[in-house]
Each structure stands twice: as C-alpha cells, then as structure tokens.
C-alpha cells in the first residue's frame, strides 16, 4: 500500500539548535553555501515581552507539486508514495522548477550544477525504513515523521490531537510537512 508520509514540526519544542540542519548537511553532502534544510530563528515582540520564533525551511513534499508539472523533461517527478524527487541525469537545470516552487525549497548544487532539494533522505535512509536524518537527531523531538495512514503511528496520533498548520495551504499544494504553531504569543 502507498505510504502517506507526514513530517510534523512542533514550534513549541524547537530550540533552534540547528542539529537537523547539520545532520542534513552530513547525510546528503550539501555544499557549504546552500541549504536543503534550515531553521530560521527570529525574535518577536518588544522588550521585555520577547519571544523566539522558529521556522523550518525545506521542501514540504507537496501532494500536488507545482515543480513536477512545470518540468519539461520529467526529471522532477513524484513517486508512488507521493514523494517528489529529481532524476539527476535528466535535469537540464533550466531552473523552471526553482521558480515554480512557492516554498523556495529548490536550489542549484554549485558543485554538480543540478537542481536539488530535500528528499526526506530517501536513498540513504527512508528506503531502508529509517527516519530522515533531521528527525533522527532532533534533540527535543520537535520533529516527528511517519506514515499518517497507520493509526498507531506517532504522526497519526499527533495529527488527531494537535492543530496542524500547513504552509501556504491556500495554494492547494497539500504539503506533507506541517507544523504545530507556537502556543505562546508575544506582545507586538
């Protein structure tokens, strides 16, 4: 049966340590000047009512991916499990998919000159039933990953319990990455 992967990022648990970012780099040999994944940290509010905001920036693995429909060669494709991948050999680096992505998740790998992005660590980990590197190293369990169609999975249980926000949901891209918004507010 096809999987229904989901990655949940809990903003309340994230401490901005960037362990996920570093793990991603090591796992996928990401060149220094680009990121498949990073957590943007911002300060919000006015002193003394300050708060920290953590935002995961990565491919959100859309169920309706605009980067796949615009690709002229089929190099950008969606697998049976709904994951979006890139056939390196067929990518001509026309950069159309980079422009089509509303999450700005794609970039050119300056060493290989091909378009790259997060793959949920498919080749090295997920295909061996291991969690993506970022999830496996998360120090506070702010990142949860699994098959949401399995009722007992952590992500399924979390999805039933929590209010999930899907980034830019109004675009109809149906992301597989979602977040639990920070419950604590700050005075702006």
């Amino acid at each position: 049966m096809a999987k229904a992967y989901r990655l949940i990022f809990d903003e309340n648990l994230c401490i901005g340590c960037q362990a996920c970012n570093v793990a991603c780099r090591l796992e996928n040999d990401v060149p220094e000047e680009v990121y498949r994944l990073q957590v943007h940290v911002t300060t919000q509010g006015v002193f003394p009512h300050l708060g920290m905001h953590f935002e995961r920036r990565s491919c959100v693995m859309c169920d309706e991916p605009p980067c796949v429909s615009v690709c002229p060669t089929g190099a950008s494709f969606q697998s049976k499990d709904g994951l979006v991948h890139i056939h390196e050999s067929q990518c001509i680096t026309c950069k159309y998919c980079i422009l089509a992505c509303p999450y700005h998740a794609r970039f050119i790998n300056p060493l290989k000159n091909v378009v790259e992005k997060c793959t949920f660590c498919f080749d090295s980990r997920l295909s061996k039933a291991l969690d993506p590197a970022c999830v496996s190293v998360c120090t506070t369990e702010a990142l949860r990953f699994g098959d949401v169609s399995q009722e007992n999975s952590t992500v399924a249980m979390l999805s039933r319990k929590e209010t999930l926000l899907f980034p830019k949901a109004h675009l109809g891209t149906k992301p597989k990455v979602c977040f639990i918004p920070a419950r604590k507010g700050v005075k702006v």
């Binding site: 615009v70 060669t73 089929g74 990518c91 001509i92 680096t93 026309c94 159309y96 378009v115």
Partner: peptide, 25 residues
C-alpha cells in the same frame, strides 16, 4: 543559459503536456 547546456536533448526526447516550457519546445 541552461545550467547543463549539453543535456538539452532531454527537451527533445521527453514531453510533458502540462509544462508550458515543453509546449514551447
């Protein structure tokens, strides 16, 4: 202007009717 100009032939042997670039080709 392609990042990999020599692989442009993929444009000729693949066709994606949903892609305006492919239709343009």
């Amino acid at each position: 202007d392609l990042g990999r100009p020599l692989s442009f032939y993929w444009l000729l042997i693949r066709f994606n009717p949903l892609s305006v670039m492919s239709l343009g080709v």
